[in-house]
Simulated scan of single mutants.
Amino acid sequence: MALDPATLPDDVDALKRLVVGLTREAVHASTLIEKLRGELARLKRARFGTSSEKLGPRLKQLELAIEALEVDEAERLAGTPVVAEAREAARSRPARRDLPAHLPRESVVHAGPCACPACGGSLRRIGEDVTESLDYVPGRF
């Protein structure tokens, strides 16, 4: 369900009711998806039993239903506006910290060719990859 900002009501209570309705729809859709996944898993386990011939069409129908629900949910989520707090929460994820400065470092530079092997023209650096890795060295005397 795509929401057009121009058609949204200006009343706070109406907006709250709209959010509650969308939340209920999302919970219902995710519950239905989980229920169908559980049933699909149960039927897949039963597929290799004695009456597996009867389960083939039902399994395919369940897989199609789950796929359709997932597509609908993705479209619905793509149509809803992104809240600023959600963007801030995504940006504030903890990042990997630099290694402490007191640790010894070893620099390895892989030199490339000075000239193009095909035409003999000069080459220039277009980028650089820097990697720091921590190696464990067992205790020593």
Rank of each mutant, 00 (worst) to 15 (best):
E53R: 04
G127P: 04
L64Q: 11
A26Y: 15
R47Q: 13
R58M: 11
L69H: 09
I126F: 10
L36T: 07
L43R: 08
F48W: 12
S133P: 01
K44A: 07
R96I: 15
V108Y: 13
A41R: 12
V12S: 01
I126E: 07
T50W: 05
E128K: 04
L123V: 11
P117K: 00
L69I: 08
A111D: 05
D4Q: 02
L32H: 06
D98G: 01
L134M: 08
A78E: 15
L18K: 05
A101V: 14
E73C: 02
L3T: 13
K44H: 12
D72M: 05
V108P: 02
E34P: 02
E106D: 05
A46V: 01
A29T: 15
D13P: 00
R91K: 05
A26K: 13
L64E: 15
S30Y: 12
A95I: 12
A6H: 11
I33P: 14
L22S: 02
S92I: 01
G21I: 03
G121A: 12
A78L: 11
T80V: 12
P113Y: 05
A118Y: 04
M1P: 14
E67I: 00
T7Q: 01
R125M: 10
V137S: 05
Y136E: 14
R37S: 09
P113M: 07
L32P: 00
L69G: 02
K16S: 04
R47S: 08
E73T: 05
E85A: 09
A95Y: 04
E75W: 10
L15E: 03
R91V: 03
G49W: 02
K60T: 15
R42G: 02
R125I: 15
D4G: 00
S92L: 04
D135H: 12
L62G: 02
E73Y: 04
R91N: 04
K44T: 15
L15N: 05
L123K: 02
E63A: 06
S52L: 07
L99I: 05
K35R: 14
A41H: 13
R125E: 15
P81Q: 04
F48T: 12
R124F: 09
P57R: 00
E106H: 06
T80M: 13
A101W: 01
R96N: 09
L99H: 03
G21S: 09
L3K: 04
I126V: 15
S30L: 13
L36F: 14
A86W: 14
L36N: 10
S122G: 06
C119L: 12
E132T: 06
A90M: 07
S52P: 09
L62C: 03
E85M: 10
P81Y: 08
D4S: 03
L43V: 09
T131D: 03
L77D: 06
G127N: 11
Q61R: 06
A68L: 13
D11N: 12
L103P: 14
A84H: 03
L99K: 01
